[in-house]
C-alpha cells in the first residue's frame, strides 16, 4: 500500500506571533519552525498502516521555502521512506488552492492508495488543502478523522460530530484528514535521525510538476492577505469582594448591564 502524507512547516505553537512591518505577514525572525501538529498525526497513521501491513512505502511531501526541508527531514527521521520538496519561486505565495494544485501534481507522479494530511495547518487554520486535493485528484475524502480502519480496498473512518460518532466508508484511493486523537505520534530516535540522512529527498519545481505559473503561487492566488491584526489585549479580570449575597447580586448586574450576556 502506497501512502502519501502532505505536511506543512509552521511556527512552533508556543511562538509569540509578531506582525511584520508590511502589516500583512508575520515577523519570522527567531521563529522555531515545526511540523504542524495535525500533520504529525497524519504521518503517525501512515507509519502505523505501513507497519501493520508490513509492505508499501510512506512518501512525505511539502510545499515551502528552503527551510521547509528540515520539516521533511524530521519526518524521514520518524520513519517516512522518501520526501518530496516542492520548491520554486513561482510557488511562493500560494493560497490553499495553489498549494493543493502543486501537491496534487506531485502525488499524481507515482502510484498511491491513500493520502493523509492534517485537518488544518496550525497558524493559518484554513482546513482547505485536504478537501481540495481530493477534488483535484478526483477521489473521495473524509475529513477530521479520529479513527481509521482499512480492509479490502476500503476505509472506515470515524468522525467526531455533535454528540455522536459518524462512521464513513469509502473506496481507495482517498484523502483522509487527521484530527488530534487519531493516534499518539511517536518520538523520533537517534537511529532514525541517522537513517534519515540516507533517505531520498527529491526537489520538484514548476516544470517537473507540469504546472502553469499563472495557476499557482502569488500569481494564481484567489485570496490574499490584506491585513493582519493581533487580537485585542485581554482586559484584567474583576474580583468581586463582599458577602456572597451582595457579590452575587453585583455579578448578575454586571453580566446584564456591562457584559450584556444575560
Amino acid at each position: 500500500m502506497e501512502l502519501v502524507v502532505c505536511i506543512k512547516q509552521v511556527p512552533d505553537t508556543e511562538t509569540r506571533i509578531k506582525i511584520a512591518a508590511d502589516g500583512k505577514s508575520i515577523d519570522i525572525t527567531g521563529i522555531n519552525w515545526v511540523v504542524s501538529p495535525y500533520d504529525e498525526n497524519a504521518l503517525e497513521e501512515a507509519l502505523r498502516i505501513r507497519e501493520t501491513k508490513g509492505e508499501g512505502g510512506v512518501a512525505v511531501m511539502t510545499l515551502g521555502p528552503e527551510r521547509a526541508a528540515s520539516a521533511l527531514r524530521s519526518c524521514l527521521a520518524l520513519g517516512a521512506d522518501r520526501a518530496v520538496h516542492l520548491q520554486d519561486p513561482a510557488l511562493e505565495g500560494s493560497d490553499s488552492l495553489g498549494t493543493a494544485r502543486a501537491l496534487a501534481a506531485a502525488i499524481r507522479r507515482s502510484r498511491f492508495d491513500l493520502v493523509l494530511v492534517g485537518q488544518q495547518g496550525v497558524g493559518t487554520d484554513n482546513s482547505q488543502v485536504g478537501p481540495m486535493l481530493a477534488e483535484l485528484l478526483d477521489i473521495p475524502h473524509v475529513n477530521v478523522v479520529t479513527k481509521l480502519e482499512i480492509a479490502n480496498g476500503k476505509i472506515r473512518a470515524h468522525r467526531q460530530i455533535e454528540g455522536a460518532v459518524e462512521v464513513v466508508e469509502c473506496p481507495l484511493p482517498a484523502v483522509v484528514t487527521a484530527q488530534k486523537g487519531l493516534n499518539e505520534p511517536r518520538y523520533a530516535s537517534l537511529k532514525g535521525i541517522m537513517a534519515a540522512k540516507k533517505k531520498p529527498l527529491e526537489r520538484l519545481g514548476l516544470q517537473d510538476l507540469g504546472l502553469d505559473a499563472a495557476d499557482v503561487g502569488a500569481a494564481g492566488a484567489r485570496n490574499r492577505w490584506t491585513r493582519l491584526e493581533l487580537p485585542p489585549a485581554r482586559q484584567a479580570g474583576k474580583i468581586l469582594d463582599g458577602e456572597p449575597e451582595e457579590s452575587t447580586a453585583e455579578l448578575v448586574r454586571l453580566l446584564r448591564d456591562e457584559a450584556k450576556v444575560i
Partner: peptide, 18 residues
C-alpha cells in the same frame, strides 16, 4: 548543524514528554 539541532530537539521532546 542541522543534525545537531534535530538531535537536540528530539532529546528535548523526549525529556519533556517522557
Amino acid at each position: 548543524s542541522q543534525d545537531e539541532r534535530m538531535i537536540r530537539d528530539m532529546v528535548r521532546d523526549f525529556a519533556d514528554g517522557v
